[in-house]
Design a protein around this nucleic acid. Sequence first.
DNA 1: TATGGAAACAATCGAACGTTCTTTTTTTCC
DNA 2: GGAAAAAAAGAACGTTCGATTGTTTCCATA
Lengths: 213, 213
Amino acid sequence: MARTIGSNGARTAKAIRQAGVQLIYKHGYEAMSLRQLASEVGLQSGSLYKYFENKQSLLFDIVRDHMEDLISKAEEAMSDVNGPLERLKAFVDFHLRYHMTRKAHVFIANMEIRSLDEPHRAIAIEMRRRYEHMLEDALRQGAKHGVFKVPEPKVSTYAIISMLTGICMWYRPDGRLSQDELVAIYTDLVVDGVAKQDAAEAAAPVGRRRASA
Amino acid sequence: MARTIGSNGARTAKAIRQAGVQLIYKHGYEAMSLRQLASEVGLQSGSLYKYFENKQSLLFDIVRDHMEDLISKAEEAMSDVNGPLERLKAFVDFHLRYHMTRKAHVFIANMEIRSLDEPHRAIAIEMRRRYEHMLEDALRQGAKHGVFKVPEPKVSTYAIISMLTGICMWYRPDGRLSQDELVAIYTDLVVDGVAKQDAAEAAAPVGRRRASA
DNA sequence: TATGGAAACAATCGAACGTTCTTTTTTTCC
DNA sequence: GGAAAAAAAGAACGTTCGATTGTTTCCATA
């Protein structure tokens, strides 16, 4: 046997990518074997090399494509939003929803950076830094305008992003709470955490959604 | 050659454990080879089996011992603290400092649970659940007494713990900010995020440390 | 000072790893 | 319909893996 009936390069490439993401998400990059990946898409392991240079570049392709998608979609989501508080809320909203729907990709991009060889690792870290700066800039702007109380924008940035990203560790689409409800809860947590309390409410009323239950 | 001069079982066991933690932290459990570990402590790989049953049980021993240590130290840190707000602050303080000083252990316990076979994984998850409940209980108490605004204590618990744990991704002991400064920043973020704003200040004044810089 | 146990070496196992290469089959296109 | 290109099979490679076993050396102690 050799070429399979109905085989198609583009379709196989997509299947490999998807299966690769799922396997790395489940078992980790190092723990995923190419034989495992091959059998998942119905190939022999050697045949995978039609589709990537080596295992390492498969990982990097996944990470790079994801980071580019993340950044461009975030820029799009915030492009028309003005004012630090609104930009902060837009970031929280976008980040949460993106992470709820792309758990596997996000997990890989965050956890498998250490499995990247140089210079791939440096490139991925730089992309992450660019993304983080979108939140950090909003915090700095808010502090400058006296709306936020953030003595250390860098620390707050890391803290907030960690908090939001953590949702992908437990969120399930069929869970009790809807995406909208979760976004509301997290937004309250973040906004109240950084807003200057005497001024925030007056400056731009933050909906105190759902006081209980 | 066979037994080395000055060799001592207890000392070797400790060295294996420490090197194991560092190697798993750096490269991940699956990526760490026993030959690597053995050479780190100056042994042949076969000799390691005097000190553990197999690679899997080495990981579980590390995770279990760490979780037991985490829980007992947390209980100790909060044993004399009364009132939801004070208990929340005590938890934040403890969790941050513990994670700043035990980065490797914490990282392993969080990230390598998926590398544990059953029933080890279930045991580790149950221990983590017990720990999380310490924070969740404080939040529920505060909500019941009208001090906190937490519509979903479970969600807030996950959110806060994610935020706090994230510090081990970037904290360096020789960094610009001291442990005390970082604890103060995070405490402000968390407390302001969950406190019922009109009541919190009056009920128990939260130090608004360092308004800027 | 002889002896039993502790500590580590050294050699080896079969399996699995990432990767390369050649061959075979299917599809596409002129 | 025949040739070129695409897609995949399949065999083999040198390594490395976790694990096992038998042996040698050191040390405490009686």
